[in-house]
């Protein structure tokens, strides 16, 4: 079953008299338990697509069904609640609060979900352990390397045990080794937690590790390749 189904998404911006179409009737379905990569040159609309699929932005036309729920039927608060319960986010910048230790960063969203402190701490420790930061739990962002910061950011999203995990250029600020760690972590999240991981990136390293690669250009999907399980060679499929 598809975790995310988008149909006929249209989105554009008007600047002065000029109308720019970002998405032109794009339809797409994303499967659970896979790392799906949206790749494409900058300005092709991939970040806009991500923000619509995650419910951050309402499209001009078209709809999104996420986990069987029409994402844009309710109001802003309903979408906030949906994101709180079901989604995790990782951005290019790590966006960690300078005042909080790694463990506190990870515990923070759980507090807003109504998880009690003790459970939140246990889950926070387990999640940091999973991303390989068990010995960095009590450090502030200023004391962490870039790769470690991104792993804290991943743990902060993962600790919510989301069904949908969105990542925007998660490796672009990282060196090769750290980028690889982040890629492996995202892949593991998809396969071990049966999470729908949707990643936007133009990092070629990610292409070889994704289960599915959607190539975007000019607001439409040009190419949809699925990589069979255990196979790193991409297999061509017709565009949706």
């Amino acid at each position: 079953m598809s975790a995310l189904v988008a149909s006929d998404l249209c989105m554009g911006y008007t600047s002065g008299k000029l109308r720019t179409e970002i998405l032109r009737g794009l339809s797409l379905s994303v499967d659970a338990g896979q790392l799906t990569l949206i790749a494409g040159p900058s300005g092709c609309g991939k970040s806009t697509l991500l923000s619509i699929l995650s419910g951050l932005q309402r499209p001009d036309a078209g709809g999104v069904v996420a986990l069987g729920e029409d994402l844009f039927r309710g109001d802003r608060h309903a979408r906030d609640r949906f994101r709180l319960q079901h989604t995790g986010f990782v951005f290019q910048g790590f966006n960690l609060f300078p005042a909080l230790t790694a463990l506190e960063q990870v515990m923070l969203p759980l507090g807003y979900m109504g998880v009690d402190d003790r459970t939140a701490e246990a889950r926070g420790r387990a999640t940091l352990d999973e991303v390989g930061l068990s010995d960095r739990m009590h450090l502030l962002p200023a004391e962490l390397s870039g790769g470690e910061k991104q792993r804290v950011a991943i743990a902060r999203a993962l600790v919510k045990q989301p069904e949908l995990f969105f990542a925007d250029e998660p490796t672009s600020a990282l060196d090769a080794a750290n980028g690889q760690t982040v890629i492996d972590t995202l892949r593991r999240i998809a396969h071990e937690h049966d999470t729908t991981v949707l990643c936007v990136s133009h990092d070629p390293r990610l292409v070889t590790h994704a289960d599915r690669v959607l190539q975007m250009e000019d607001g439409a999907i040009l190419n949809d390749r699925r990589v069979p399980h255990g196979d790193t060679m991409p297999r061509e499929e017709s565009a949706s």
Binding site: D80, R81, L84
Partner: peptide, 9 residues
């Protein structure tokens, strides 16, 4: 903004 993206109202 990140917290807001994570669903914190």
């Amino acid at each position: 903004a990140t917290l807001h993206a994570l669903g914190v109202g």
